[in-house]
């Protein structure tokens, strides 16, 4: 793989991760959002694979397969089972409407570029300039959690945050050690499973999976 090809592949992978994050804010259908999330997982795995091949790092290649399997396949599959059929499977009335949230995502991306200077300066290699994309993904994930009402959207927001952190880690440090990555992946999987069970429970008890309805439980 030539150097320019390597850089282009990394640009593409990291770009797809960010674009996927923005798309989750744009789409309303929960099923579509989860498919976008799966694509993001694959792109993240791709970034790790490219880095691993370039640096002849076998562990990183293994990590990339783990990432694709977990974030590209396992987690979306678990989430898909929570999504009900019918009109309730759409994010009908988010707290902030879609155009406004897209504008907010743009603003957050700009902010990410503005503030990640110190981190970029720390990374010696060319991959450092892509770090702001990871940070932007994290911020958009937190935004998604704050403005979406469906429990599934919240989980997706959390996963966006996790993917963003993973992207920054891959780009800035060439990936975590294998053990740490495996541990983190297991954690995330566990969180998703717990949320899935909790989500089903909430729905069976209250008939909805809208977190705003839970506000009455306060006090």
């Amino acid at each position: 793989m030539s150097r320019s090809g390597y850089v282009a592949m990394l640009d593409l992978g990291a770009g797809v991760v960010l674009v996927c994050a923005v798309v989750t804010l744009w789409r309303r259908s929960l099923a579509a959002i989860i498919r976008v999330l799966a694509l993001q997982g694959v792109a993240l795995g791709g970034v790790a694979l490219v880095l691993g091949l370039r640096q002849h790092d076998g562990a990183l290649v293994v990590v990339s397969f783990v990432v694709v399997a977990e974030k590209g396949a396992a987690i979306p599959a678990v989430l898909m089972r929570v999504v009900p059929r019918g009109p309730t499977s759409r994010e009908l009335s988010p707290l902030v409407n879609v155009p406004a949230s897209l504008v907010a995502a743009g603003a957050l991306t700009l902010l990410a570029f503005a503030v990640s200077g110190p981190v970029v300066a720390l990374v010696p290699t060319a991959t450092g300039r892509l770090v702001p994309l990871g940070l932007a993904t994290v911020l958009i994930g937190v935004l998604a959690m704050a403005i979406r009402k469906k429990a599934v959207s919240q989980i997706v927001g959390l996963l966006l945050v996790d993917n963003g952190i993973a992207l920054v880690a891959f780009l800035a440090t060439g990936g975590f050690p294998l053990v740490v990555e495996l541990g983190a992946s297991l954690d995330v999987l566990l969180v998703v499973v717990v949320l899935r069970v909790l989500g089903s429970e909430i729905r069976s008890r209250y008939g909805v999976l809208d977190l705003d309805e839970l506000q009455e439980l306060h006090d």
């Binding site: 704050a146 009402k149 919240q154 506000q215 306060h218």
Partner: peptide, 8 residues
């Protein structure tokens, strides 16, 4: 106020 969204 009990709203998860507000806390987030």
């Amino acid at each position: 106020n009990g709203s998860v969204h507000r806390y987030l």
